[in-house]
Design a protein around this nucleic acid. Structure first.
Lengths: 238, 238
DNA sequence: CCGTCACCGGAACAACGTTCTAGACACCCG
DNA sequence: CGGGTGTCTAGAACGTTGTTCCGGTGACGG
């Protein structure tokens, strides 16, 4: 949003094409920096943060960039490209340390925790595993590299290494997706609890410690991560 | 698919409205059973299995049912409803045993394994965690009930119980989603490997045991599940 | 001066989810 | 028997989406 924004009908203001030289930028652009892939991705992330995945639209994205809709297609082949790039940008937010501490387990826990925080800042990014496209962005690969080297340092190799990698990946993605999908309003929570209560006879255990009201996501994540890391540690000793 | 299907231009065949009484069903319907929610869900599952999530369309679904598109909206409020129902139907495919064996761990492993098989039969169902709607269908709740009672039998309570529940849930969903998102064609696999190889200096560990060519999903799932169950078992003994 | 190239964007298309509205049929109450 | 009510069906249409077609504009090199 710059100064002119907010007034949508400025077409014939200040009369046609002449205007004031000083107000007219020299190079033919509109005073905006030239459109680049980077600017598109940045705007896409902002839009996704503000309004969520189903409000990301090529038209809305273009509007936010003060640019014609179809112009985007010069820099990007499809909308999926935009999303792929946006997701990889989120991976870039977690600072991957360039050296390890003495405890591989703590390295892993810290890396995974950072990543979870980044995902919680951008919940739409957790919908990625659902999209049927493999992740191959540079930021993702850098993250993967650090995770795997930490796992190697922890003593894992071969199939166990791969299994541990994906298990940790799935834990972060799943936990984030679950958390944001159960971020219900007070009214929805009440209705859900009532619904569960009415079926208590069929689902006594589920109703007893009901998953709809339990919102201690930090504990769920940390304890689940502990399960995994305990199991991984035990396996690496075998 | 019934007998008439496959020929799309039968409009004026056998002349207009009269026809043969015996071929004309008595009650004004088209010889099809009346449209019900159950039939809609069944057709939706079949359509999703055949063509995937992004090909599920109200129009295509109606066509498959030999029904007007808008008719669906009498039985169902939105398309999301259809998907929710379809997903719950998949949970219904895993037979939930009505009693437990002597080993809680084996109960859990069997239940989770069955569930994974159902998900692999219907990979689109693994995209659920990404949709921002809580699962509350009867089949899902029945499944959850058995899982949680098994975990209780294994000695878990309170926060650990919830954490274990979600960890196992996320493992199945994540593993399935990851597996089907990396189901690449031979050409794509080759390109991906080449891409990784060219960046080997940046991501040596990732490139070494590269995740694009490794397709031993059964091992990944089972080993990851072992990590989790080991950790859970250890926690329950504390 | 003239083309070529990088970049921009209006108009249009097919497809989507959904609503509006009207029709067909069964059944009940008189 | 007859008219109204409720259940179910569906055509037409609206607004929105991703994407393509095609025609621009300005800078730059020959």
């Amino acid at each position: 949003m710059n100064v002119i924004a907010g007034n949508e009908r400025t077409k014939s203001r200040s009369g046609g094409k002449v205007g004031n030289v000083w107000l007219r930028p020299s190079k033919g652009n509109k005073g905006e920096p030239p459109l680049t892939r980077a600017r598109i991705v940045k705007a896409a992330v902002a839009l996704l943060d503000d309004e969520g995945m189903d409000r990301l639209t090529m038209r809305r994205l273009a509007e936010r960039l003060q640019v014609g809709t179809t112009t985007l297609y010069w820099h990007v082949a499809t909308k999926d490209d935009v999303v792929d790039l946006a997701v990889d940008a989120i991976f870039g937010e977690t600072q991957v340390p360039d050296q390890h501490t003495e405890s591989a387990r703590e390295d892993i826990a810290a890396l995974v925790g950072d990543w979870r925080n980044a995902m919680l800042r951008h919940p739409w990014a957790a919908t990625v595993p659902a999209r049927q496209r493999p992740l191959m962005g540079p930021n993702f690969l850098a993250w993967m590299e650090f995770l795997q080297t930490a796992l190697v340092r922890a003593g894992l190799t071969g199939k166990q290494l791969n299994a541990a990698t994906w298990a940790l990946y799935n834990h972060v993605m799943g936990a984030t997706a679950t958390q944001s999908s159960l971020q219900l309003s007070a009214e929805e929570t009440r209705l859900g609890q009532e619904y569960l209560e009415n079926r208590r006879e069929h689902y006594p255990t589920v109703a007893a410690n009901n998953y709809i009201a339990d919102h201690d996501w930090d504990a769920n994540f940390r304890l689940g991560l502990d399960f995994l890391l305990d199991g991984i540690e035990a396996a690496s000793r075998r």
